[in-house]
């Protein structure tokens, strides 16, 4: 589908290389090696959270590699149905035509739709839903729009999308809100709806109070808001490219073209010991036996765990770097 055209000789050269022992890949990697992943958060100032990610770009001139931009924008939504309480998440993936020059616009639409479906179904699952997307119960909530743009593709697009999505969601700040209530005008006041703002100290049991809240305001505060609840839960994906009984990670376009099927496994690692499988997808035409599948799923857990751990470390570094930068900027201004 997305694969680059490749000759039979190239294909068998790659396959033979993967199946020899020790396995040899075109760029000298071993089967389970990833290319270097470049990551930066906070790249889009107008978004609530954003990230730029590149797998396998050339460090010298920045060419090549799969590149993905992810951005989160929060939008206030009026709740019409009761079921939507607590906000919702909408993912969208768009692919730049320059990333897929050989695809027609129809094929590009199909591809975007495929990627969007996988991402949306996984990330908008209730088990991952952050608890702080509500504003006023049964009236207003945040709609979290997660948009991803593929600007260049050099293989392994699913892993890149999930990594970028996780980084952008990690970076997301939800603006603080305060409920506003209109008190019914007292008879002895010459009142035309005098406005009262409730305080942060109100009791959580005071549901009566909340039920009357009709609107909210955004208090002016020194930071952009609070982080999304449960941001450690956001999953990471790993694509296992299957060739006979062997599997390899982080395939280039040529390698993707020379193996018949791929298995995408998405795991959420809330803590180093607790993990849940969030989604799984078989891409391609080959069949897979159940025992083999079981083994692969188990191995995928190991890969995603170390991927999630390194990603979290990197994201914490990024947070620190940006805080540091902001502080320096602030200090310079004084």
């Amino acid at each position: 589908m997305t694969s680059a055209s490749i000759s039979k000789a190239e294909k068998s050269y790659i396959q033979a290389g993967l199946l020899t022992s020790p396995p040899r890949r075109a760029d000298g990697r071993s089967l389970h090696d990833f290319r270097a992943i470049y990551l930066e958060t906070g790249v889009a100032p107008l978004s609530n959270g954003s990230a730029r990610l590149s797998i396998g770009r050339n460090p010298l001139d920045g060419s090549g590699g799969t590149e993905v931009l992810a951005a989160v924008k929060l939008e206030v939504e009026n709740i019409e149905e009761q079921t939507l309480d607590g906000g919702r998440i909408a993912c969208n993936v768009s692919c730049s035509p320059s990333a897929y020059p050989h695809l027609s616009s129809g094929a590009l639409d199909d591809l975007q739709h495929d990627l969007t479906t996988v991402l949306h179904q996984t990330l908008s699952h209730p088990s991952l839903h952050p608890k702080n997307l509500g504003i006023i119960p049964r009236k207003k909530s945040w709609l979290l729009n997660l948009d991803l743009l593929v600007t260049a593709e050099a293989g392994n697009i699913y892993d890149a999308l999930f990594l970028a999505a996780r980084a952008a969601l990690w970076d997301t700040k939800v603006p603080r809100t305060r409920s506003v209530e209109y008190k019914s005008p007292k008879t002895f006041l010459s009142a035309s709806g005098d406005m009262d703002v409730d305080q942060d100290t109100r009791s959580g049991f005071d549901t009566r109070h909340v039920a009357h809240a009709t609107d909210f305001e955004l208090p002016d505060y020194w930071d952009e808001g609070e982080i999304l609840e449960g941001r450690e839960r956001w999953p990471v994906a790993v694509t296992l490219n299957l060739l006979h009984t062997a599997h390899f990670l982080d395939a280039t376009l040529q390698e993707e073209a020379s193996c018949a099927s791929r298995l995408l496994v998405v795991y959420s690692h809330e803590s180093p010991t607790a993990y849940t499988i969030q989604s799984m997808r078989m891409l391609g035409s080959d069949e897979l036996s159940i025992p083999h599948l079981k083994k692969l799923i188990k191995e995928a857990e190991g890969y995603t765990r170390s991927m999630a751990t390194s990603l979290t470390t990197k994201l914490e570094d990024e947070d620190f770097r940006r805080n540091q930068k902001a502080r320096e900027k602030f200090g310079r201004r004084k």
Binding site: H32, D33, F34, A36, I37, Y38, L39, E40, R52, S54, P59, G62, Y303, S306, M307, S310, L311, T313, K314, E318, R321
Partner: peptide, 9 residues
């Protein structure tokens, strides 16, 4: 196995 790097500033 997984190596995360920063874009060049």
């Amino acid at each position: 196995m997984f190596e995360f790097k920063s874009f060049q500033q």
